[in-house]
Computed example of a mutant assay.
Amino acid sequence: MKPATGSTSDDGVGCQPMNVALAAGGLKPVSGFRLVVPTGNTVVRAAGIDDLGTNHSISISAPFVSILPVGAQFATITDDPPNGWVIALKPGLPGQASQDACDAIPKWTRFWDPFLSETAETLNALLHADLIDAACADAFADVVSVHIAVRYGHCAGAAGPPLPLTRQRLTRIEAFVREHIAETILVEHLAVLVHMSASNFARAFKMATGTPPHLYVTLERVKFARTMLREETIPLVDVGARAGFQTQQHFTEVFHRYDGMTPRAFRLAHRSADR
């Protein structure tokens, strides 16, 4: 595992290739957040403590990205040269929206954002063609900062009615939830799949399905857990983890709330019904 070291520009704004960010010198403490965008087969492991004293640890690989506080420690988990970008998000772009975004952006979790993925590929192409310098890279950092502020800030989608969700868009959301059911899934993750702000998406999703997106994900977790509980070979603790519940107690509480019995009772009842 390679320790995370490197440097950023004096004002804390920087857009650096992953191998440069992991070079000797040490990551400079600056205000704001860093966007970690692995590309290729690079896997980044990040760890740290938030302002509330909660420990966090995640692994990030393409096509997912993660926004991390500047105090987070991160490293690649293989000896291969790391590919991707580390972008220090600049506060104040555009104005108050960027400050508000600090409270709304999905920190300490993986999420997929098509714009950020395309940006990383563009940066890779410029780097390989030797067509990028520090000023150009930091200009990309400014653009990414604006995108984060507008997409995830509190002001995102504040004006205008929610657009309807088509069947095609709903199918895309359903497929994403099934594929990533074991992971943390935030409203922001689902919103970027259909190019909407989180607030507009939440209203549009409830309008289309009658169910808030958070409840939909929870019910899908319960449904997936039911399927696994019918398999006698899967331990109860593994069922909860595979269905995306953070603890066994949380799994038991949520399952009982929506099924009227504990996971163990459900398994026993199913076993009796098959006899």
Rank of each mutant, 00 (worst) to 15 (best):
2 K>Y: 07
5 T>P: 00
7 S>H: 12
7 S>G: 07
13 V>Y: 05
17 P>Q: 11
18 M>S: 06
20 V>K: 07
22 L>Q: 13
23 A>W: 05
28 K>V: 12
30 V>E: 07
30 V>H: 14
31 S>P: 03
39 T>Q: 08
40 G>Q: 05
41 N>A: 12
41 N>W: 01
42 T>D: 06
42 T>Q: 03
44 V>L: 09
45 R>L: 04
46 A>C: 03
50 D>W: 00
58 I>F: 00
59 S>I: 02
61 S>V: 02
63 P>R: 01
64 F>R: 07
67 I>N: 00
73 Q>G: 02
74 F>N: 00
75 A>K: 06
76 T>W: 00
77 I>D: 07
80 D>T: 08
80 D>F: 02
81 P>A: 10
82 P>G: 04
83 N>Q: 14
84 G>V: 01
85 W>K: 01
86 V>N: 04
87 I>C: 04
90 K>N: 10
96 Q>I: 15
98 S>G: 07
99 Q>S: 13
100 D>Y: 11
103 D>T: 12
104 A>Q: 14
106 P>V: 10
106 P>E: 07
108 W>D: 10
109 T>R: 14
110 R>H: 11
111 F>T: 02
112 W>E: 13
116 L>H: 04
122 T>P: 00
123 L>E: 10
125 A>M: 11
126 L>S: 09
126 L>G: 05
127 L>S: 12
128 H>K: 12
130 D>V: 06
130 D>T: 09
132 I>W: 06
133 D>G: 10
135 A>D: 13
137 A>P: 04
137 A>G: 13
139 A>R: 12
140 F>W: 14
141 A>Q: 09
141 A>H: 07
143 V>R: 13
144 V>G: 08
145 S>Q: 11
145 S>G: 11
147 H>A: 07
147 H>I: 06
148 I>E: 09
148 I>M: 14
151 R>G: 05
151 R>S: 15
152 Y>N: 08
157 G>T: 10
160 G>N: 08
160 G>Y: 10
161 P>M: 09
162 P>I: 04
162 P>V: 02
163 L>K: 14
164 P>T: 10
164 P>L: 04
175 A>R: 15
176 F>V: 04
177 V>S: 04
180 H>S: 05
181 I>P: 03
182 A>M: 07
184 T>A: 05
184 T>F: 03
184 T>N: 06
185 I>P: 06
189 H>E: 03
190 L>K: 01
191 A>E: 00
192 V>S: 15
192 V>T: 15
195 H>G: 08
198 A>M: 04
200 N>S: 14
201 F>N: 01
205 F>Q: 02
206 K>L: 13
209 T>R: 15
210 G>K: 12
210 G>T: 13
211 T>H: 13
215 L>R: 15
217 V>G: 05
219 L>N: 10
221 R>Y: 08
223 K>E: 15
224 F>S: 11
225 A>T: 04
227 T>M: 12
227 T>Y: 08
230 R>I: 07
232 E>T: 08
232 E>N: 09
232 E>I: 03
237 V>E: 11
252 T>A: 10
256 H>M: 05
260 G>Q: 01
265 A>D: 13
265 A>C: 03
268 L>N: 13
269 A>P: 04
275 R>C: 12
